[in-house]
Every structure is written in structure tokens, then in C-alpha cells.
Simulated scan of single mutants.
Amino acid sequence: MVLTPPTALWAIPVSDLAGVARHVLDVAREGIPGWRLVFLAPPGALPERLRDLGATVVEGPFGPDHGLRASVSTLRDAVRRERPAVVHTHLAHADIVAALAVGRGPRLMTTEHGIARDDVVYHRSGAKTRLMAAAHTARMRRFHGAIAVSRATAEAMAEKWRPRVPVTVVPNGVDPLAPRPAREPGLRVLSLARLSPEKRLPALVDGFAALHRDHPDATLTLAGTGPEEPVLRAQVERLGLGDAVRLPGFVDPDRAMAEHDVLAMLSVWENCSYALLDAAVRGMGVVASDVGGNPEILPERSLVRADDAAGVAAALAAQGLEPGVRPGLDGWPTVAEMCTRTAEVYAAAGAGR
């Protein structure tokens, strides 16, 4: 007799193809050993891509754009239909909805992708910070297990939410790539980030300006969109870097990484950045701020203080021109290993028995 595996319902409250979607798609492609996966998401690109992979998808009004009441109703309906042994939520809205919507029966699990030591990075005000901290502290009392994507993330969760369940660190998995063809070292610098204040892109432009003075052939691509675009364009113009700096909007990240030598990311906080992982596994140079989970991915020689323009310039030069000091990603967990660890977290929480 063939036993039907238990179901894990993954609840994702966004449908754009950003970092959390990458995580979800990797898991959908690989699978979690011993589990049937069902994905709940609002209409958009993510459920379409999941269906392309052959995943089972529940699409409905779920997430901040649809409101709390509709999200609770959608999740309740999905739980009633799918009868999951686990409801696994991602991002704050889904976490709180699950605490309200899911009764006895399924084990509640969460993966924390986006917490910062300083909550103002995400919430912009002290009042909202306090409200969200209280909401997460309360909802964690209903959860049976939690995953953090870095040690820094787990420490921030413990500090801010005081969870009563164990928090297990399961980093985002990345599969090895075939070595790319060797080419001459260079100083084509790339940023793949939303053009928003927490990414500290003006500091990157200042560091690049210092680099450009000594290496006039260096270039910088600030890929992405966001509210800082006018500020950045004005800064580039003021520094006389118009011929060296491009702001092309959205780009294909794989193609962009293939066309550049160094990825730079000077964010206020990162948890377990897929951009850093992808750059390192490709053999690119990497320069990042010494915050959050970045030191868990990168060696000290890749880490800088964002406000030290000379230090940023020196790191960009070394990472671009000296391939031997680039970080690589030896020994990092693969996607399959990440999925196996997730199954172990489910088992530790008593799910699927």
C-alpha cells in the first residue's frame, strides 16, 4: 500500500519575484523529503511560475494588498480543503494571519526572511515598530517551530520577540554552478537592489567616485527602481560620473552578473541575501556592509563600513582586480540540503506523525 505523504501548506502573501519568491521557487523545484507541498499566494507572477514548475497552487486574495479579513478567509478555506499537517508561513502578514486563522490540528511553522536589528529599517516609525513587535511576540506563542535564514536573524528574533519555541537556522540554499569562462579582471561594479534609503546607495556612489579617480575605466551599474532614483541621478551628475554610472531600471540578474566583475551591497541590514550568494557562487568579487547575516556568507576582506568611501573603493578594486581574494562559496548548503533541514524542523515540531 502506498501512503500519501502529509501536506505542508506554504502561505506566501506576495506574488512578486523578489527574494522570498526565489526561496519558494527553489523549494517547489526541489521538494521537501516526505512531504506534499501546496502553495498559497495572491494572483500574480509567483503562482504562475509555480504552476510552470508543476506545483500545486491555491491562488486567492491573500496578503497586505487584500486586507486582513480576506486573507484570514482565504487561508481558512485552503486549510479546510487541503487538510495540511503543517501551515508554513513566510513574511509578517502571513505569520499574523495564520495565528488568527488556523485552529487546532496543523502545526504552525514560520521562516523569517526579513527582520532587522533596527526595526526602523522596515517600519519607519517607533509606534509601528512597537505594534509589530507586540503582534509577533503574541503570534509566536501559537507557532510550533521557527526557521531563521541566518544566525543574525535568529538572534534578532530572540531579542525582539522572545519566542518560546526553538528557532533553527537554515540558510538559503544555493547550488554550485559550472565555472564560467575565465576573463580578464575588471572593475565593472554592479548593484542589484531597490533604490531605497536602507540600501545606502549614495554611500556606494561615493565609494565608486573614489575608485574612479584612480581607475577611470571603472563603471557602476545601479540596477533597480525606487524612490532614491532622483537623488542618485543628481549625485552622479554632481560628481561628474555621468559617463561611468548607469541606472537602467530592472535588469535580468543572471545576465547582469555575467557582464560585471564585482557585486556591491552596502545595505543597513541583510538576513541571507540571495544576491550575495549568487555572486559568490559565480566567482564574482563581492563587497558588502558588515551587517546582519553578511559575515556568515563573506570573509572579512569582502566586508566594509558603508560610510568609509576610501575603504569601499579599496575593497572594490581588490575584488575586481585580484580574483584570488574573491570569496567563493565552498561548503555552503545546497537547495536539497536546505529542504532536508526543513523536513527535520517539521519532524522536531511533531508534524506529520
Score class of each variant (00 low, 15 high):
residue 146 A to Q: 15
residue 153 T to E: 13
residue 160 K to S: 07
residue 160 K to T: 07
residue 165 V to M: 13
residue 154 A to G: 04
residue 185 P to E: 02
residue 167 V to Q: 06
residue 155 E to H: 07
residue 152 A to M: 06
residue 166 P to A: 06
residue 151 R to S: 12
residue 167 V to F: 05
residue 143 F to G: 12
residue 141 R to C: 06
residue 153 T to Y: 10
residue 150 S to T: 06
residue 184 E to F: 00
residue 152 A to D: 04
residue 170 V to F: 03
residue 170 V to D: 03
residue 181 P to H: 08
residue 149 V to H: 09
residue 160 K to Y: 05
residue 153 T to V: 14
residue 185 P to A: 03
residue 175 D to W: 05
residue 161 W to M: 06
residue 163 P to K: 06
residue 167 V to S: 03
residue 140 M to Y: 13
residue 175 D to I: 02
residue 170 V to R: 01
residue 176 P to V: 02
residue 154 A to V: 02
residue 151 R to C: 02
residue 185 P to K: 06
residue 140 M to E: 15
residue 179 P to R: 06
residue 162 R to H: 12
residue 162 R to K: 13
residue 164 R to P: 03
residue 166 P to T: 02
residue 183 R to M: 00
residue 165 V to Y: 07
residue 170 V to C: 05
residue 162 R to C: 00
residue 156 A to N: 13
residue 150 S to Y: 06
residue 149 V to C: 05
residue 150 S to R: 07
residue 147 I to R: 10
residue 160 K to F: 02
residue 168 T to R: 14
residue 175 D to R: 06
residue 158 A to P: 01
residue 182 A to H: 11
residue 182 A to F: 01
residue 160 K to R: 15
residue 154 A to T: 01
residue 156 A to P: 02
residue 183 R to T: 12
residue 184 E to Q: 10
residue 167 V to A: 08
